[in-house]
Design a protein around this nucleic acid. Sequence first.
DNA 1: CGAATCCTTGAGTTCCCTCAAGAGAAGTGG
DNA 2: CCACTTCTCTTGAGGGAACTCAAGGATTCG
Lengths: 207, 207
Amino acid sequence: MALAALEQVFEKGQLIFSEGEDCVGFYLVLSGRVKVFKLSAEGKEQILHILGPGEPLGEVAVFSEESFPAGAQAMEKSRLLFFPKDSLVEMIRRDPSVALKMLGVLSKRLRKFTRLIEDLSLKEVPGRLAAYLLEKESSLGGKGNSFSLEIPKAQLASLLGTIPETLSRILARMAAEELIQLNGTRGFRILDHRGLQELAQGSRRLS
Amino acid sequence: MALAALEQVFEKGQLIFSEGEDCVGFYLVLSGRVKVFKLSAEGKEQILHILGPGEPLGEVAVFSEESFPAGAQAMEKSRLLFFPKDSLVEMIRRDPSVALKMLGVLSKRLRKFTRLIEDLSLKEVPGRLAAYLLEKESSLGGKGNSFSLEIPKAQLASLLGTIPETLSRILARMAAEELIQLNGTRGFRILDHRGLQELAQGSRRLS
DNA sequence: CGAATCCTTGAGTTCCCTCAAGAGAAGTGG
DNA sequence: CCACTTCTCTTGAGGGAACTCAAGGATTCG
């Protein structure tokens, strides 16, 4: 049997699937960026993750035989590869190492969620933001260099479990304390790594 | 090769492993109850899950080749079966269906975390509590029957991402609005299912 | 250049946490 | 069985972090 896989293109803002929908397969992101999110009754959004090229999407639903636990939407024009449910099971049967790989992916995701839960429950917004900035600096720029967010601030707020207004205020305070420097709308430079680290681990607070 | 597995007994309150420790294997709960948790810098605790007989513990660390992402502690005297890291990989090699089963377990856990994140980020404490009570009623008592918490309220608070004082106040308010009835320290009866459901989904608030 | 989106700032409110003290339950030992 | 300690839970007063609502400023895009 051939491993049927179908390439699909989603425009910016297009829904890939909604929470509660029946799962018929999973996706692999080829290009673009996709967000997975939850919505509250009042419409507030919590982003669970943002996926880029090479990352799988919707695998969870395949293994637990239920509907999608969250929605997914393209943040920009994106190409995805769709795998019908059965083909994954088939792939595992052919090559058991696929299973181990998949277990690794899920474990990593679980770890990421653990951290998000920790952040939401045990840290304040400045701490979450500090951690995010430090991580982005190292993955995008390199220590001491300036870097630029790849997502709008409203999306960042939703990723950090807050709202744009709060995010904006906290960035302003960080800048006032010379922890960071803001360049235009999305540009950043970290001035005080130590200070941000202390914020991230809760041993310091903004005044 | 024999599948080495070692039975271990942990007393109430005893640590099974700490966050950050190197993972040398995983456990299966035989009896008792075990909590998995995160601690903040100031000592506040967030319980990630409470595991009972038949549930695996610490699997995540096995697959992602890193240290434990959270700590684990016995909530009462518990017997656990310990499996060295390699034996799980070996089990999967012998019987690939083990991998599928494990994938199912991880998926379920991921789903649970998704809900916890949703709760922490998008719901208020009364909503989380209402959802918890409804779930416990159906798993312990049966609709309309009274039931009794199996954990101290302080632990419940930590599971819901709040503190005992807040929990206590909200229970009192729920009782005042005749949504629930409190019997002694741990006894409950749900009087108004509809009301609690509305609280849980955010379409109603306590006054 | 105009329209639309995104971002910032202000004022006010709410939820929940902190701190503190007392009431209740449970376990221990005399 | 009763005093004792200890643990758990409740209740009050106060404060702080973050949300809502509202409006103005900045960017981006067609």
